[in-house]
Write a protein that binds this DNA or RNA. Structure first.
Lengths: 206, 206
DNA sequence: GGATGTGAATGTCTTCACAGCT
DNA sequence: AGCTGTGAAGACATTCACATCC
């Protein structure tokens, strides 16, 4: 399949949320315009995004909500569950591990790690915080699909290196460092400082 | 000033982090190539990003770290402090209110609100959680520069409306809804589902 | 009639490549 | 010689507009 822009994937993920709402309300069909209005974009954009993956609508009719929902879920790879590990049981790790929105989309946090003996052994919603020493023994056989890195800055690269060795192919990185990983490993960075600074930039320049 | 792409602003914010590290290490000058390598981009991109705002380097020499750091901080609007309020004292709100990285960049969380009487009155690192009823009486005279919306989905729009009325011009929205606000109000959305789903998309399509 | 799907046109961002300073 | 600053070229993304089909 042809290369798809990340912006397209992000919009599909956004549309999916609306589609799930429509489905929950029992709405049978939607037009590209309705999805667009909800998502703050244009009907042409919605149609183009979808058309990159196939023809899901009926001319004159719009899209069947259940069919399109299933199609988008499938495009996004949500047709199967993902095992997630969180490394770093600080503020961020704690919030993520407890966040129920993850599981409802098929992302199951099965492991939480920390280095601090004061945190190891604590139980969060039935999930025990384990010593980061156990990474290899726990995960060597079945590496998680996705690892959330929520360690302090200094520990992130070392943890990532160990997990890459174990075969982890996708990281969601909250540590404010650029992780160095092999070509075939994906890293998605989330950085609150950047989000706030785009706001401060905008506040200043208007 | 000409319109600057958000991607440029995000990169500048990233460069700033590296510049601050270089400055802390006492490094006097950097080239665009050094910043680029650190940030996973190209030297031409770094020079172009900076040139949109002025000429900060010396040909043949590179950029003075202290001068460039100051310039980028200024571009991003970080020359002054920002008062931040957090609405919603759940997992996300709690993590953000306690996150020390905010204050070090000049973003000072001065207010935390929740609706739940069980949370109101709790003290987090010296910051008392207040009842969301008090929004107007607390903030009418001096609305915060930025409000972090970390409420449940259903409460977000109502809270945003009240804050817009109070004069708030910038929101960082963690609630998974598209907030409707006037033209001159900025909303930056942060949505973990989207981040995870760009990863699941990538895991599926390779 | 009404909404999709899609080439073509437009707009935006990134990369190239080199003149111009130090 | 080395590195910046920047027009020009190229790549990429969005919007337009309309033929096509239900």
């Amino acid at each position: 399949m042809r290369k798809i822009a990340e912006s397209t994937v992000r919009r599909l993920s956004l549309y999916l949320r609306f589609l799930e709402e429509f489905e929950a309300k029992g709405i049978a069909t939607v037009s590209s315009g309705e999805v667009a209005r909800r998502g703050g974009t244009t009907s042409a954009q919605v149609r183009k995004d979808l058309s990159l993956f196939g023809s899901f609508g009926k001319r004159g009719m719009g899209y069947s909500v259940p069919e399109l929902t299933r199609a988008v879920r499938d495009i996004l790879g949500l047709g199967r569950p993902y095992v997630v590990a969180v490394v770093g049981a600080g503020n961020v790790g704690s919030a993520l591990a407890r966040y129920s929105g993850f599981a409802s989309r098929g992302f199951h946090v099965r492991w939480v790690y920390d280095q601090d003996p004061g945190k190891v052994g604590l139980s969060w919603d039935g999930l025990r915080v384990r010593d980061v020493e156990n990474l290899e023994s726990d995960l060597a056989d079945h590496p998680p699909d996705i690892v959330v890195v929520a360690t302090p800055e200094g520990a992130a690269q070392g943890v990532a290196d160990r997990l890459v060795t174990l075969g982890v192919k996708a990281f969601l990185n909250f540590a404010p460092v650029q992780l160095a990983v092999p070509e075939d490993v994906m890293v998605k960075n989330v950085n609150m400082a950047i989000e706030l600074e785009t706001l401060s930039y905008a506040l200043r320049h208007r």
